[in-house]
Amino acid sequence: MAEHELTYLLEKLHVRDMMTPEVVTVCGTTPLMEAGQIFLQKKFGCLPVVHDNNTLAGIITVTDLSRASIAQHEAGRTG
């Protein structure tokens, strides 16, 4: 495939063509540990966080949880 052919094909595609439409979500009040369980069970690396009306509030990643556990450990050492 030539470069211009590939570019042409990619230009025809939109995000909606490739995205996962059925999404597992959490809300801001979901316990962190519950989000952690979802990551482990579903093998996800990232979860969208939604408001009560299902609008997007943010995203949470496995790395965010890692950071939380490190921060927790450090706070526990000095506290």
Binding site: M33, L40, A68
Partner: peptide
């Protein structure tokens, strides 16, 4: 991996 760390974190918390 990060998933193993997550498992350790959840187990410790529990």
């Amino acid at each position: 991996t990060e998933m193993d760390c997550l498992r350790a974190f959840l187990e410790t918390a529990r």
